[in-house]
C-alpha cells in the first residue's frame, strides 16, 4: 500500500514528459501506474488525453488499482475531456465501481454521443460496488440501474446493447430486491428473440443460463 514517496513519483512523471516515442511513453506510464501512489493520479488522468491507446490502457489500469481515491479527480475533470479521454475516464470509473460515479454513468449510458462511452457506462452501472452505498439507498439505486439498462438494450449499436445485457447479468447477481430475477429473465428472453445481433442474443443466453442455475 505504501507509495514510493514524492521524490520517486516526480521522477516517474518526468520520465513520461521526456519520453521520445509513443512506445517509450507507454513504458513510462506503466512504471508510474505500478507505483500505485495517489500522487500519480493527476498525471495518469492527463495521459488519458494523449491519443495513445497503449498509454491510456496503462493509465486506466493504474487509476483502477488506486480505486475510490481516484474517483473525485476523475469526476471533477470529466467535462473538460475530449471524447477519447472521456471514454477512457468513463472506463476507469466503470471499472472502479464507486457509487459516486453512478449519476454520471447512468446519464452516459443513455445519452452519450460516442458509442464506446455508452458501452463502458452500461457495463459500469451493472458492476457498481453496492456495499459502498448506504444500505437504505441500494434498492432505489438498483431499480434505477435496471430501468436504464433495460432501455439501453434498445441502443442502435450492438456493442452498447451487449454491454447493457452484461450489465443486467451483473446487476441481477447483486440485486437486493428478489423480484429483479424474474423481471430481468423476462427481459433477456425478449433480447434473445428480438435482437438483430447474434452476438447480443448469445450474451443474453449466457446471462439467462446463469440465472436458471445452469452454470455449465
Amino acid at each position: 500500500m505504501a507509495g514510493k514517496g514524492l521524490a520517486d513519483i516526480s521522477t516517474l512523471v518526468q520520465a513520461i514528459e521526456t519520453a521520445d516515442s509513443k512506445a517509450a511513453i507507454v513504458v513510462a506510464v506503466r512504471n508510474l501506474a505500478a507505483a500505485n501512489d495517489p500522487a500519480a493520479i493527476s498525471t495518469l488522468i492527463n495521459v488519458l488525453g494523449y491519443n495513445n491507446p497503449g498509454a491510456a490502457v496503462a493509465a486506466v489500469d493504474g487509476l483502477v488499482s488506486l480505486g475510490s481515491i481516484a474517483v473525485p479527480a476523475l469526476l471533477e475533470e470529466l467535462d473538460g475531456y475530449n471524447y477519447g479521454a472521456r471514454a477512457w475516464a468513463i472506463r476507469a470509473l466503470a471499472l472502479i465501481g464507486d457509487p459516486r460515479a453512478l449519476p454520471v454513468l447512468l446519464d452516459t449510458a443513455l445519452g452519450d454521443f460516442a458509442l464506446s462511452v455508452r458501452r463502458a457506462a452500461a457495463k459500469g452501472i451493472g458492476t457498481i460496488n453496492w456495499s459502498q452505498l448506504p444500505e437504505d439507498q441500494v434498492a432505489q439505486a438498483q431499480a434505477q440501474v435496471m430501468e436504464v439498462l433495460q432501455q439501453t438494450t434498445t441502443d442502435p449499436e450492438w456493442v452498447v446493447r451487449y454491454a447493457a445485457v452484461a450489465g443486467l447479468h451483473a446487476l441481477v447477481l447483486k440485486a437486493v430486491d428478489s423480484s429483479f430475477g424474474a423481471v430481468i429473465s423476462q427481459h433477456l428472453q425478449q433480447v434473445i428473440s428480438h435482437d438483430r445481433s447474434l452476438t447480443v442474443q448469445a450474451r443474453a443466453q449466457m446471462a439467462l443460463n446463469a440465472l436458471s442455475g445452469d452454470l455449465g
Binding site: 491507446p53 458509442l115 450492438w158 456493442v159 434473445i192 445481433s197 447474434l198 452476438t199 448469445a202
Partner: peptide, 24 residues
Amino acid sequence: AENSLKLIALQGILESHLQHIGFP
C-alpha cells in the same frame, strides 16, 4: 489496440462459430 476494434473482431469470430454450431 483499441477495445472497440477488438470487440468487432471478436464479434466476427463468435458469429462464425455460432453459425457453425447452429445457435440459437
